[in-house]
Nucleic acid binder design. Structure first.
Length: 714
DNA sequence: AGCACGCCGACT
DNA sequence: GTCGGCGTGCTC
C-alpha cells in the first residue's frame, strides 16, 4: 500500500501537490520535513504538509518524491498547523510561509545532474529518435549537465523532452542536494546572568492575572492597555517569568528601530537569551541566531512582524507591542497580519498572548471587553503632561493661523525645542494646473506625483518613478502649474520666513543621502542647534516621549479623507503618537491646527480621551456594518492588463456571490487603481460569520485566485 | 511564478 | 503565407 504526501512548494500557488512517498522513505517522511520533488521537469524543494495513507481516485499522474531532505521534521506539528491556519486565513501560500520561516543560510540548493546512460548512447548512435531528442542527447555526449540548467538549455519543450528521455532510460538523473555546512561551531554561551531586580513591582502586580496565566499551558489572550513605560515593566516581568519556566518568548514590535532600542535597553538584563531577527541582521548572524534558538540557548526572539515566522521550541508567551500599528500587516506575498498570526500561533502553541497598546485598535478593544481579557493599567505619576490645544484653521487660507504663529514665536524666542508635524512628505503633495486642473500622475501608479523641491522633480511615493517638474501644462498649455498641499519641505520653508534667523530643518527620508545623515539631523535637534524640526509621523519614532516643549501638528484631517473605514483610528493614532512627545516642562504645549476641530477622532485624541473615541468609533462602525461587527475581506486582483484583472474579479464574484451569508460589493477600482504598473480591481466581502467567509476561501477554490491578494479585517 | 499552448495582427 | 503578441490554463 502506497503512502502519499501533500507537498507545499515555495511558489505563489495557493495549493499543495500530491506525491507518492517511495517505500524506503515512508517511515521517515512526516509533515514538516523538506523534500526534493520533480515539478515540471525540474527538481524543486518543498515541504510535506500532510501524509496520506489513501487518496481518492486521481485524475493525474502522481510522481514520486525524489529525496527526503530532513529525516526529522524541521517544523513542529504546532508550528506547521499554525502556518497552515495562517495560510488559510490570509489565503497566502503555505510553501512561501514555510520558506520564510528559516534563514536562507539553512536553505538547500538543488544540484541534480543529468547524464547519458549506455542505452542513451546507443540510441544516439543509431539515431532511432526524433531529432529534437537526438540533439538533446548529443549535448550530453561528452559531459553531464545540471538538470535545471539542461532543461532550460534545450529550450522549448525542455521539460517534456527530459521526461521522455528519462522514460526511455536514455538519461539518468543523479539527484543531489547541496546544503551549506555550518563552518564555525557555535560559540559557547556565556554564563547566563539575568538581572534579578524588578523594575516596577507595582505595575507588575496590577498585571497579576497575566503573570499567573504563564505556565498554565493554555491559550490565554490579554489586551494590556497601558502607557509605554508601564507596558515595558510588565513585559519585563512576563519575560522573566517565562524564562524561569523554561519557556520561549516571542516579542513583536512594529518597527526595526523599536526592536533595536528594546535590545539596547533590555538585552543586558535578559542576558544572552535574546535574539534579534529582522531584515537588517546579516544572513550569517541570522543563521547563528536561528541555531541558538533551536538549541534552546536563546529563548527570547524580538523583531518586527516577520519574526512571527520563527519556529521556537516551548513557546509560552507572545507579546505584540503597539498592536494598533498597521505595520503589522505584511502586504507583499506571503500576505499576513502578524496580529491575527500571533493569535493563531498562541492558540496552536497553547501560549499566553499579550497585545499591548496605549490606545488599542478598536477591533481588539471590543473583543477584549466582550471576552473579558482587557487589562488596564493606570498611569504612573508622570512628568508634567503638555497643555493640549486645538486651533481651528483651514488649510486653504494660509499655512499657519496667527495664534499658531504667536505660540511658535514665543517658544522659539525662549529657546524651546519645537517639533512640527505634517503627514505629507516632499515639498508639495501634488502639482496642478490652475486653469484646467490637470494633475501630473505617475505612469505606473494611479496617483498624483509629489513635488520634491530638492531635485526639482516630481516623484511617485509608491514606486519611485520620477520626472523633471513641468512649468507648462501639457493639456492646456498655460504656464500655471502650481504645487498644492503642504509637504514637509514647504512647511520648513514657510517657517524659515516666519521665524527669520532661526534654524529650521526637514526630517524625512528623501532629505538624507548618506547613511548617518539622519542621526546627525536628530543630534542637531537634540543638542539645540536646530530650533524647529519638521517631519512626518516617521520622526516621532525617533524622539523620546516628553522631550519637546512645543509640538505642532498640522492638518491631521488629511488621513480622514482616505477611503478607509479605519481612518478615524489612524487619525487618533497619528495625533496620540505625537502628543506623547510634548511635555517634561511646566509650560509644554501640544497644538493641533485643524479645519475639523470637532471631529471625534481629532478632539478625543487631543484630550487623550480614548474611551470616548472608542465609543464614537464603535457606534460608527456598528451603524455602517464595519469590522468588528462584520468580518470584511478586501480582495484585490492585480494584473498588468486591466481586462485580465477584471476577468479574474468577475470569475471570483461568480463564485463568491453564490455563497449564502455574505455580501459581495464590487468589483470596482481599488483606491490605488494602478500600482507599479499593475491595474487593481477590488471586491469587498462583508460576512457575518467566519464560516461563511471560510466557504469562499475554502480548498475548492485553491489556485483559482490568480494575482489576488486578500486582506481580512475582523 | 513560469512556461507552453493557442489564436489573431504586421511583416521578411 | 509566418513571426510574435499576450490571453489561458497547468504544474502532482
Amino acid at each position: 500500500m502506497s503512502v502519499f504526501a501533500d507537498v507545499a512548494l515555495p511558489l505563489p500557488l495557493r495549493k499543495s501537490f500530491l506525491y507518492v512517498v517511495p517505500e524506503p522513505l515512508a517511515p521517515q517522511a512526516a509533515p514538516g520535513c523538506r523534500v526534493a520533488v520533480p515539478f515540471r521537469g525540474c527538481i524543486r524543494i518543498g515541504y510535506i504538509v500532510r501524509i496520506r495513507r489513501s487518496v481518492p481516485e486521481l485524475h493525474f499522474k502522481c510522481k514520486p518524491i525524489s529525496r527526503l531532505i530532513d529525516t526529522k521534521p524541521l517544523f513542529s506539528s504546532e508550528y506547521l498547523n499554525f502556518i497552515l491556519k495562517l495560510s488559510h486565513t490570509f489565503y497566502s501560500p503555505a510553501g512561501e510561509l514555510l520558506h520564510a520561516s528559516f534563514p536562507s543560510g539553512f536553505q538547500v540548493k538543488e544540484k541534480s545532474k543529468i547524464s547519458l546512460t549506455d542505452s542513451g548512447r546507443r540510441a544516439l548512435k543509431e539515431k532511432k529518435a526524433a531529432s529534437s531528442l537526438l540533439s538533446a542527447l548529443s549535448m550530453l555526449e561528452n559531459r553531464s549537465y545540471s538538470l535545471n540548467y539542461f532543461v532550460k538549455k534545450i529550450g522549448k519543450n525542455g521539460r517534456a523532452a527530459v521526461d521522455s528521455l528519462q522514460k526511455k532510460k536514455w538519461t539518468a538523473v543523479e539527484e543531489s542536494i547541496e546544503s551549506r555546512k555550518e563552518k564555525a561551531p557555535l560559540e559557547p554561551l556565556p554564563a547566563f546572568q539575568m538581572e534579578m531586580a524588578f523594575p516596577d513591582q507595582k505595575a507588575a502586580s496590577e498585571a497579576r492575572a497575566v503573570l499567573q496565566a504563564l505556565g498554565q499551558h493554555e491559550f490565554l489572550p490579554f489586551l494590556l492597555k497601558a502607557s509605554q513605560p508601564a507596558r515595558e515593566d510588565i513585559y519585563f516581568a512576563l519575560i522573566r517569568k517565562s524564562l524561569s519556566l523554561s519557556q520561549s518568548v516571542l516579542f513583536l514590535q512594529p518597527e526595526i528601530d523599536l526592536t533595536q532600542r528594546f535590545q539596547e535597553k533590555w538585552g543586558k538584563r535578559l542576558g544572552e537569551n535574546i535574539e534579534i531577527l529582522h531584515s537588517r541582521v546579516s544572513e550569517a548572524e541570522k543563521k547563528r541566531g536561528w541555531a541558538r534558538i533551536q538549541d534552546r540557548r536563546s529563548r527570547v526572539v524580538a523583531g518586527p512582524r516577520s519574526a512571527l515566522l520563527t519556529p521556537l521550541p516551548d513557546l509560552g508567551l507572545i507579546i505584540v507591542d503597539e498592536e494598533q500599528d498597521d505595520l503589522y500587516f505584511q502586504e507583499d506575498s506571503p500576505v499576513y497580519d502578524a496580529r491575527k498570526g500571533a493569535w493563531l500561533r498562541a492558540q496552536e502553541e497553547k501560549a499566553v498572548l499579550v497585545f499591548g497598546s496605549e490606545y488599542p485598535r478598536i477591533e481588539d478593544m471590543m473583543k477584549a471587553e466582550k471576552n473579558n481579557f482587557l487589562v488596564t493599567i493606570r498611569d504612573k505619576e508622570e512628568k508634567a503632561p503638555a497643555e493640549a490645544l486645538i486651533i481651528k484653521h483651514q488649510a486653504e487660507q494660509s499655512l499657519l493661523h496667527m495664534d499658531t504663529i504667536a505660540i511658535l514665536k514665543q517658544a522659539v524666542s525662549r529657546n524651546k525645542p519645537v517639533l512640527m508635524f505634517t503627514n505629507r512628505r516632499g515639498y508639495a503633495a501634488f502639482v496642478s494646473c490652475r486653469r484646467c486642473r490637470y494633475i501630473p500622475r505617475c505612469e505606473n501608479c494611479d496617483i498624483p506625483l509629489m513635488f520634491n523641491r530638492k531635485d526639482v522633480r516630481m516623484v511617485c511615493r509608491y514606486c519611485g518613478f520620477s520626472k523633471p517638474v513641468i512649468h507648462e501644462c501639457p493639456r492646456c498649455g498655460s504656464r500655471m502649474m502650481h504645487g498644492r498641499g503642504w509637504g514637509v519641505e514647504a512647511v520648513a520653508e514657510e517657517l524659515k520666513k516666519i521665524l527669520s534667523g532661526m534654524t529650521v530643518e526637514s526630517f524625512f527620508s528623501d532629505v538624507f543621502n548618506k547613511p548617518g545623515d539622519m542621526e546627525k539631523c536628530l543630534d542637531r535637534y537634540l543638542s539645540g542647534e536646530t530650533d524647529v524640526l519638521v517631519g512626518t509621523q516617521m520622526l516621532a519614532r525617533y524622539i523620546r516621549p516628553f522631550s519637546a516643549s512645543l509640538v505642532v501638528v498640522l492638518f491631521p484631517e488629511i488621513i480622514l479623507s482616505l477611503p478607509d473605514f479605519r481612518a478615524g483610528q489612524m487619525t487618533y493614532d497619528f495625533i496620540s503618537s505625537l502628543k506623547k512627545l510634548a511635555g517634561g516642562t511646566d509650560d509644554a504645549q501640544f497644538i493641533v491646527q485643524t479645519g475639523y476641530p470637532r471631529h471625534h477622532a481629532v478632539a478625543a485624541a487631543v484630550r487623550g480621551d480614548y474611551l470616548s473615541f472608542y465609543q464614537e468609533e464603535i457606534n460608527y462602525r456598528s451603524l455602517l456594518n464595519y469590522p468588528p461587527f462584520t468580518i470584511m475581506a478586501e480582495v484585490v486582483f492585480q494584473d498588468r492588463s486591466a481586462r485580465t484583472a477584471a476577468r479574474h474579479a468577475r470569475d471570483f464574484l461568480r463564485w463568491a456571490g453564490g455563497i449564502a451569508g455574505v455580501d459581495v460589493l464590487g468589483p470596482s477600482k481599488a483606491p490605488l487603481s494602478r500600482l507599479r504598473g499593475k491595474h487593481r480591481i477590488q471586491l469587498l466581502i462583508k460576512s457575518r460569520s467566519r464560516t461563511a467567509l471560510d466557504k469562499i476561501f475554502s480548498e475548492t477554490l485553491t489556485g483559482a485566485l490568480p494575482g489576488a491578494s486578500v486582506r481580512v479585517y475582523e
